[in-house]
């Protein structure tokens, strides 16, 4: 990879200042950015590591929601959200492998918005909120297509607020080499209705499967999904699976998630 200047501030304020320079890039756990830089697909002049900022780490319950620091690793979420939000902890415990989970962070995953990342499905299905150094962004406004989010240049995800559902589950069909989901579905049941978010499948990145949400809000069971099928239009088609195959998997994974959550 090309060389760069490295900074490791200990406060959000210092990180924001460091990121104001042209071509400066925030570095979370580096599990995506460093491989990308090795391939010379990214070449920032400066990396600002967020890993020494204690104020953006940790998992805490605040009333009926879970507040997770943007710099919290997947491993920590898997352990510390297990009692309060088991669907989320289950998702976190299956990202990559144990060593990747010790470095990769929730904020990093959400800021990158890989169309096959797991966390975007949890944020969108939870109807959560992204908290940054300057504002709050609702999940429904945050994701704006593959690798694209509402974040501005140099904006840092300091926390994510996730309303805790009554029931939830995440199921993914793994691409066995990368362990990214070929299709992943997060189902969350709230008093006000059910939300279903799909990752890995669409050219536009994570999205809500609203037909399934309507069916499940009336009857939260796999049988409520009988006869429903996701459209193959706009689905990713590649060497690992056609768009039709991915569309089929959306139905299968949603049923599995509902059954496991029930």
């Amino acid at each position: 990879m090309y060389n760069f200047e490295f900074e490791q501030p200990t406060t959000v304020a210092d990180a924001v200042k460091a990121l104001s320079e042209e071509d400066a890039q925030a570095l979370g756990g580096g599990q995506t950015l460093l491989p990308t830089m090795k391939q010379r697909l990214a070449m920032p002049s400066k990396l600002v590591s967020l890993t020494a900022i204690d104020e953006i780490k940790g998992v805490k319950k605040d009333g009926d929601q879970l507040v997770i620091g943007g710099g919290t690793t997947h491993g920590t979420v898997a352990r510390e959200a297990a009692a309060s939000y088991p669907g989320l902890a289950g998702l976190a415990s299956k990202i990559g492998d144990p060593a990747v989970r010790n470095r990769g962070t929730m904020g990093g995953s959400l800021a990158n918005n890989d169309p096959s990342a797991c966390y975007p499905a949890a944020l969108l299905a939870s109807g959560g909120t992204v908290v940054t150094d300057r504002r709050e962004i609702a999940a429904d406004d945050y994701f704006q297509g593959m690798f694209t989010t509402a974040l501005e240049e140099g904006e840092i995800i300091t926390a994510v607020k996730l309303p805790i559902p009554e029931k939830s589950n995440y199921q993914k069909f793994e691409q066995p080499a990368s362990r990214f989901p070929l299709v992943g579905v997060f189902v969350a049941k709230y008093a006000g209705g059910v939300r279903v978010a799909v990752t890995g499948a669409s050219n536009e990145g994570v999205f809500r499967w609203t037909e399934a949400e309507e069916a499940l809000s009336g009857d939260f069971s796999a049988s409520a999904l009988e006869g429903l099928s996701a459209s193959a239009e706009g689905m990713i088609s590649d060497i690992h699976g056609s768009s039709e195959y991915r569309a089929h998997l959306i139905g299968v994974m949603t049923k599995r998630a509902v059954t496991a959550a029930a």
Binding site: L34, P35, A99, V100, R103
Partner: peptide, 28 residues
């Protein structure tokens, strides 16, 4: 060198990490 294989696995502050996907300066 792409954090898949684990041959570079070491412990940093007690946690298993892939040392090919961490900067030396991050281990200060």
């Amino acid at each position: 060198d792409t954090s898949q294989c684990g041959a570079c696995l070491v412990h940093v502050n007690g946690d298993a990490v892939k040392s090919c996907t961490m900067l030396a300066l991050e281990a200060e």
